[in-house]
């Protein structure tokens, strides 16, 4: 029996690098996968900011450009 479509791997760009992760992939599961679950970060998908309140529901799709940013020193 074929696996449901949603279980197939998702290929996307994460901070400029190509990644392949088993789907379905929400922002929350992405952050946990990269050990960022406890870090204060913000996320944009295809140049659109994802509100933190929607991290659990928003899914990353094939070909998405995902940016995960944090605060660093700067003038």
């Amino acid at each position: 029996m074929a696996l449901p479509y949603r279980r197939s791997a998702v290929e996307f760009q994460l901070n400029g690098e190509s990644r392949q992760v088993g789907g379905p992939l929400t922002v929350v599961s992405l952050l946990e996968r990269f050990d960022l679950g406890r870090r204060r970060v913000a996320v944009a998908i295809n140049d659109e900011v994802v509100p933190r309140s929607r991290f659990a529901e928003v899914e990353i799709h094939e070909g998405d450009h995902v940016e995960v940013i944090h605060a660093v020193g700067g003038g």
Binding site: N15, D35, V72
Partner: peptide
């Protein structure tokens, strides 16, 4: 002031400015 930059995914556990 602070800047916002991509998280370095290869530097797990690095200290954070905040």
């Amino acid at each position: 002031t602070v800047a916002v930059r991509r998280v370095d995914l290869s530097q797990k556990g690095a200290g954070s400015l905040l």
